[in-house]
Write a protein that binds this DNA or RNA. Structure first.
Lengths: 187, 187
DNA sequence: GTCTATAATAAGATAGAC
DNA sequence: GTCTATCTTATTATAGAC
């Protein structure tokens, strides 16, 4: 069944988020799924491959989400606003996967690591180009694009480490706070 | 000798930074020190205690560094600038320890975890009070203090994850970039 | 597709000699 | 203070029955 495969991934995401990749055993994942650990290997060839699948899918969806957020928006400042909001929203809505994608890269093999970092770099490049355009058009003050792009992305990503879906603020409100802070900071 | 104890800690910091706490074995630390793994236990009762010592000392020094940065500065905006600069400087100068302090808390026992989080909260409180004062004095625009304090600290802390001591920018320059961005963002 | 059983290895930690 | 030797336990992963 494909259902079990999905279930394994869901349980793994929860455990990797809570305990970390290395501190989580295949046995714990199996217990969470109500199966024996040997059965995991019917669906995934290794623990590392399970991690890679999680990260790979998350990065794919993250990129798709950004393209969606930017679709049909033309003004540069509007595009940055949309990119920032989209980034925050995706990270808060898929908190656990994104936390893992930002903290468990060291668990990957060298080849898998390269693939994920390549995707991450392509994603960051879009933000860097947007900031660069903003500076050229005089919307933003001159600044170090690389450092500020890292700063902005880390900032928004960090929401995923403390965000509580049942907490005081909704995703949209938090996105608004970050958007205001960042756009002020860039001017 | 006290020298060996320090050496163990230094090697452990390097390995925990590079590979992560759970992915690093006592044996690797011992090899790095040129001793056998059993000898580690003469200096530290357990691997977890070694992690706790690293985090504990880092937090102590971080707090002392902040108090130093703020000493004899009275104007609120100047105090925030000094706090931000001090935070960035400490995190870039002691990159590895700070990275560990922000990523390996899950390796601690519950009691040790509580002690470290208590220190971290006290540190954050100082920033929150400063931002609050800035708002009351009309230096900053009204905002969500908790969220922005997390944002500011994460932002500056994040430098520790990509900073290269031999790279293009010096610590002071990076601190300046963050200071400008954050102060703009708060206004 | 899931199970039991087990292989192969490595981990954290301790005992006791020197 | 450091060593060798060892205990105990947990881990990833595989083999083969059902």
């Amino acid at each position: 069944m494909l259902k079990t495969k999905h279930n394994i991934k869901d349980i793994a995401v929860g455990l990797f988020y809570k305990k970390g990749y290395f501190a989580t055993s295949i046995n714990e994942i199996a217990n969470g799924c109500g199966i024996r650990k040997a059965s995991i290997y019917y669906h995934y060839p290794s623990k590392e491959d399970l991690l890679f699948c999680i990260l790979s899918e998350t990065m794919k969806d993250l990129m798709a989400h950004l393209h969606n957020s930017l679709a049909e928006i033309e003004d540069t400042e509007d595009r940055i606003r949309a990119a920032v909001r989209g980034h925050v929203q995706f990270h808060l809505n898929r908190q656990k996967e994104n936390f893992i994608a930002n903290s468990e890269l060291r668990g990957l093999t060298r080849e898998h690591y390269r693939i994920i970092v390549k995707k991450r770099d392509a994603y960051e490049k879009i933000f860097q180009d947007l900031i660069q355009q903003g500076i050229q058009q005089g919307v933003f003050s001159d600044c170090d694009v690389k450092i500020l792009s890292y700063a902005i992305l880390t900032l928004c990503t960090s929401g995923a480490s403390w965000f509580n879906p049942d907490g005081r603020l909704a995703v949209g409100e938090i996105a608004g706070i970050y958007e205001k802070f960042i756009l002020n900071g860039l001017k």
